[in-house]
Computed example of a mutant assay.
Amino acid sequence: MHSLLKRQIRKYLPDELKAHPEMESFLEAIGKSYENFDDKFSMLHRASTISSDELFEANKKLQREALQQKNILVSLEKAIASLRENLNDEQEFDFDIQNEFNAEHLASYISNLASKVSNMTLEKDKLVAHLENQNESLNNYAHMVSHDLRSPIRNISALMNWIMEDEKDNFSQTSKDNCSLVSENLIKMDKLVTGILNHATMGETKEHRVLFSLEESLRDIEKTIYVPENVTFKYANDLPKMEFERERLEQLFMNLFLNAITATEHLENGVIEIGYEPDDTYWKFSVSDNGKGIPTNHQEGIFQMFKKLETTNNATGIGLAIVKKITVLYEGSVWLESEENVGTTFFITLKKNT
């Protein structure tokens, strides 16, 4: 025991107790009790310190969990809002998800929306299956019509040629002109049937991509089609080498070339220019001519099937529709800028990796 404490205790003891032989043991016992108190106090202090640290860590964990729960609720609220918007759901959701959380109500509501999504998915699958059946029927019909029409058309064309050859000395000039007109219309019908078949079957088969020079490919097209002497092709100097489905690309440019030739063949000096713009994502091209131009009121529907500006030539009205379908097939687009009696420019984009 501390000496000052002993002194204070002895100060208040009667004289007969101060000299009592057991007093030292008494004072020693008091001292030990104080020592135990100090030890227990120290232990309590340490325990409270540990508990405080644990509480601090637990509080931090609770804060993190609360923030996580809040984020989950916000995400749920956004998901529900999106579902209601897309489903045109008019059911009332009568509590604020962030301020009043009712798990049973929320689960019931989400279950209801999920059921609607499931029903919509079933309907979509039915529609897709129905659409696939319709497309298959249309393609079969296109093949059948193409085959059934081509054969008699070509037979009639051959017969007309034989008649013209055998009776050319007996026919009047008027009859000869009429026979020539029949032959021209048969050729036009054959082109029309071929165009319908090409449009209907576009995208059915996958073509292997090959590496080729675009300029070389375009010059080959120029050699295979009729180009009047008064029409000149000009190619950009930076036309690229491409890894692409060559046949479809040539089909696209051939239709654009034929369209441009029709627009310029009446000019003394018709010019068709092919341009290129480098891009990381898309192949970007343009085909320009200095021809008739397209009236503004006809530009919007120019890519529709059988849409054509004139009926006096051999145009079928399918060429630009095929161009449109090819660009869509490769996640691109086609559009035009045109002014009457000045010329037209078609712009084409095709995604490089589809």
Results as ranks from 00 to 15, higher is better:
Gly195Pro: 00
Ile156Ala: 08
Ser333Leu: 12
Pro21Glu: 15
Arg246Gly: 10
Glu222Pro: 01
Cys179Met: 13
Leu214His: 06
Val271Asp: 00
Leu329Val: 02
Glu268Trp: 06
Asn140Ser: 09
Phe253Trp: 00
Phe306Gly: 12
Val227Ser: 06
Phe26Thr: 12
Leu267Ala: 01
Leu131Trp: 06
Thr121Gln: 15
Glu216Asp: 06
Ile302Asp: 06
Lys284Pro: 12
Thr311Asp: 02
Asn88Tyr: 03
Lys308Asn: 05
Gln68Phe: 13
Ala81Leu: 07
Met23Gly: 12
Leu252Val: 03
Leu336Ser: 01
Ala200Ile: 05
Ile261Pro: 07
Glu310Val: 13
Asp96Met: 06
Glu28Tyr: 15
Phe93Leu: 09
Ser75Asn: 11
Ser213Thr: 08
Glu247Tyr: 05
Leu87Gln: 01
Tyr12Pro: 05
Glu216Thr: 10
Ser213Met: 08
Thr345His: 12
Ser48Ala: 08
Met164Glu: 15
Thr312Asn: 12
Asp238Leu: 02
Asn140Ala: 08
Asn161Trp: 02
Thr201Gly: 01
Asp125Lys: 13
Ala79Met: 04
Asn170Phe: 13
Glu104Val: 10
Thr311Arg: 10
Gln299Arg: 06
Ala47Lys: 09
Gly317Val: 02
Asn161Gln: 14
Ser118Trp: 06
Glu165Ile: 04
Glu123Val: 08
Asn290Tyr: 06
Val74Met: 09
His266Glu: 12
Asn59Leu: 04
Lys168Cys: 09
Leu87Cys: 03
Asn99Lys: 15
Val145Gln: 09
Met164Thr: 14
His2Phe: 12
Ala79Leu: 05
Thr174Arg: 11
Gly293Pro: 07
Gly291Met: 01
Leu267Glu: 01
Glu247His: 05
Ser137Asn: 14
Gly317Phe: 02
